[in-house]
């Protein structure tokens, strides 16, 4: 075991670079997924039937096709359309789109959980439709959906490992290289497993913190 650690030590910097890339991809993709998810969720609860249908099809499609297939679709397909972006950008794009479908479902449930009376009261006070949406509906929906969104985002972080299949050298990609050069795949991947678990655990702690902060002063849910 001591031998293993000594052999891995020179590669720690390289692994750390990969870790930084994973974090960067995750931060960008999480932001993208939440923005896109909020947009799709508001479309899914819109008045227009067409908007609802489009949003529902989007969610259904991207939730039921494996992420790796979506990733290959974008990675090999976009250059065909004359769009030349790097592998990292493609990966972040695919993660945002796939994550957006899951986040949309969560936020939609949050929107539907708002009591009709609250919206009616806002209407009686003379708030415009946009004001009701941005001041009443969205803040409440986001507050309710923080916790379920957390598990979606944790899944997104785990999904980021798949970017290694399109030549992005994030944590899994660098680990592959280190495993090949040191020929200690078991040790490298075991460390990786624990690292990812630590990363998602930290994220879940952060989600709990945000949930507490947004729900301060709220009575505890009974169910």
């Amino acid at each position: 075991m001591i031998r293993s650690w000594n052999a891995l030590e020179p590669h720690l910097g390289f692994l750390l670079e990969g870790f930084a890339l994973t974090v960067a991809a995750c931060v960008l993709a999480v932001a993208g997924a939440v923005v896109l998810g909020a947009l799709i969720a508001s479309l899914r609860t819109a008045r227009s039937r067409a908007a609802r249908t489009v949003a529902a099809v989007y969610c259904d499609l991207f939730r039921n096709v494996p992420f790796i297939v979506q990733l290959f679709f974008f990675f090999y397909g976009l250059p065909e359309l004359g769009i030349y972006i790097g592998a990292f950008e493609t990966g972040v794009l695919a993660m945002s789109i796939a994550g957006g479908a899951f986040v949309a479902d969560v936020i939609r449930a949050g929107i539907l959980s708002i009591e009709q009376g609250v919206i009616e009261a806002a209407r009686v006070f003379g708030l415009s439709r946009w004001q009701i949406f941005s001041r009443i509906v969205m803040p409440n929906a986001l507050r309710v959906s923080v916790r379920p969104m957390g598990s979606v985002l944790i899944n997104l972080v785990l999904t980021s490992s798949i970017l290694s299949t399109i030549t992005v050298n994030e944590l899994t990609g660098t680990a592959k290289i280190v495993a090949a050069t040191t020929f200690m795949p078991f040790e490298v991947y075991a460390v990786l497993l624990v690292l990812y678990a630590a990363l998602t655990y930290t994220l879940s702690l952060a989600v709990t913190g945000v949930h507490r902060r947004l729900n301060r002063g709220m009575p505890e849910a009974v169910a």
Partner: peptide, 24 residues
Amino acid sequence: TELLKNSPVLVQLFLVFFGMPAFF
């Protein structure tokens, strides 16, 4: 089970496919 749930399946696959033959 917590460790398995909280790590990428891809890494688990690599651990089993590349790691186990080399280690065991």
